[in-house]
Nucleic acid binder design. Structure first.
Lengths: 349, 349
DNA sequence: TCACGTTGAGAAAACCTTTTCCCAACCGCG
DNA sequence: CGCGGTTGGGAAAAGGTTTTCTCAACGTGA
């Protein structure tokens, strides 16, 4: 027998049987030694451990899964192929699971029912322990039916089935943060420019906007709804600022439905010689850093904490898989305001 | 026996054994019937198939994998957590593999060696058939060692190990497309504004830029290297256009290293009253649609075809897993020019 | 009738690990 | 010396599928 020195990468994985025979014990004993189970002398256990170490033994996850009926694998379903929402979310999910030794199948289903079916079946066949469904819109379903699946399902940033568990961002809370910030900064005429009325979050944020203004006894302007683009930001500024009303009647703050709109608003204001944040404060939504940091001045924006949301979803799934019960319903996670320069500084500051 | 009508979702998966006993045959026969193997009467085969169908039988992938030593699973390693490069690439990979019944483990390793190790080991334990490594930079390695892995590895949009197979975009070719386009459009004084010198692609594109200009006997200006931001685009315009040289000596076209720089360039030009594309044509790189479509005018840009690159990588891995040999080396995939309005139209058009 | 080939289907091994018995040896105690 | 209890470790089943081998029945030609 040649003593192989460095544990050179074996061409074929070493099995428990090989460890056992190298250590001169049965596979049963070897298994128990490595898992800290059973009874044996400390010396035997240590010898087996060393042998396994030396041979570079790693248990075959497939065999373990087959037996334990637990694959340490979950599926992540998304239809947000190119979007920027799913990536931080996925990172959070993955982050929460990797420490538990759980790997994540990424399944992009677009909006294709057939593709969704295909992926779900593949995941079921592979005996995933659970599924996380995520999308690009809070108020839409994925094109798959996950209702009676015999494995736990968690929804994140997408519309959950009834009786399921879903995590979403607290958009109303996020909107409050933004508008309250304007109030604190002494802004009095706060406008709201947002996306299409077909999005549920548009109404949720608009409601919060109205509430905060009312609470502060400030005038409530009807929100301007358009679409999620810079161009719409430009147009909204034209509508808000190009009238012949005096300076004192025009907005001194604009709360925007996303960062692209805010970018358009800031650019349009600058083109009109209106100072940001001097004359008008601007706050965006999404905190899309690459946009928020490129605006002039850098954009204050509401962050939905998507990565944290993904983490929570991952942990919730883990606990469900572990057999912990959990009440169905929607959990809203708080947003946070990332203050940069576009909103201005406190009067006294 | 009650005839259960609709195949209600069973609480526990139905096994081959159950199918066999329901059809009155042995598991061996059942297996062969469903896989089109072995010899039996057509009637027997059909009866078994129907029984399986009726019971909603789906083979346990874990058991199959254990036996076949093939898990129909691959790992996708990335360190591009928030970036926009990995998403289209992943979509392409997933797309190429889903039809072969192969699922993809998404592993985000950041730039963390420990995390990389962790993920690679988890994937190896789960007996993935192969690994695709992808990153956010073509000229950097991932923080993991995939050299002697006993399973096939493909690199995509990241620096491959020697003797490995890698797919990257043909950046020089992409740059040629852009500069040639300017030449065709009759531009004569073409500038190049790009990212930091620490990126290999910056030099590759600059070389192509010089070559094309030389081929067309046009003056070659030294490329301006800075960083990948809008702010740098602004500054570059200041350097190029704010001198006291006459209009006839200033650039009439700017080829930018990415879309953000191009965005900055266009904005800065507009602020100076210089018309785009009338006075100066602009072409960007990356074709990041959300930026390219928001510039005024919409930005012509080089698309790296990342989704196609992902597809190629996926197919290559599949063929490697299938035992097909493949020569090591780097394969460059062509870019394409997406023409919008910022480059101008042909003189006669 | 016998030898032989074909057909249809089942038994069992294999994949790798975990876990539940089970058993032999040993110890102490009466 | 006999007995119950403990200790160290092994045999075997289980998990679900695939594949090889085996075998009985049957038909055919001599």
């Amino acid at each position: 027998m040649v003593s192989d020195a460095a544990p050179a990468p074996a061409k074929t994985p070493v099995t428990l049987r090989e460890v056992a025979s190298a250590a001169g014990v049965s596979v049963a004993t070897a298994s128990k030694a490595l898992n800290g189970q059973g009874r044996m002398t400390a010396r035997t256990r240590e010898r087996i451990r060393e042998t396994a170490q030396r041979l570079g033994f790693r248990p075959n996850s497939l065999a373990q899964s087959l037996l334990r009926k637990r694959s340490f694998t979950v599926g992540l379903l998304t239809n947000d192929t190119y979007g920027r929402f799913s990536l931080p979310l996925m990172a959070g999910v993955s982050d929460a699971l990797v420490d538990a030794g759980v790997s994540v199948f990424l399944c992009n289903v677009e909006d294709d029912q057939r593709l969704g079916q295909l992926h779900v079946e593949a995941m079921l066949d592979k005996r995933v322990d659970g599924i996380i469904a995520t999308g690009k819109r809070i108020d839409r379903h994925l094109p798959v039916d996950l209702a009676n699946l015999r494995i736990p399902v968690i929804y994140a940033f997408t519309q959950p089935d009834p009786d399921a568990i879903g995590f979403v961002s607290d958009d109303a809370g996020g909107a409050r943060l933004a508008v309250e910030q304007f109030c604190v900064l002494g802004r009095r005429r706060i406008a709201h420019v947002s996306g299409p009325a077909s999005f549920a979050v548009v109404h949720e944020r608009a409601r919060a906007y109205r509430e905060v203004l009312t609470e502060h006894s400030l005038p409530v302007a009807e929100p301007l709804l358009g679409h999620w683009s810079e161009a719409w930001g430009h147009e909204a500024v034209a509508r808000l600022f190009d009238g012949k009303a005096g300076r004192g009647e025009k907005p001194d703050a604009v709360f925007c439905g996303n960062d692209q709109i805010a970018r358009g608003v800031i650019d349009a204001l600058r083109e009109r010689g209106i100072g940001v944040p001097g004359d008008v404060g601007v706050i965006g939504f999404d905190n899309w850093e690459i946009v928020a940091e490129a605006t002039r001045p850098p954009l204050t924006s509401v962050d939905m904490n998507l990565s944290a949301l993904g983490r929570e979803a991952g942990l919730a799934l883990l606990s469900l898989v572990g057999g912990q019960p959990a009440a169905p319903g929607i959990r809203k996670l708080p947003c946070r305001l990332v203050v940069r320069q576009s909103c201005g500084r406190p009067p006294g500051g």
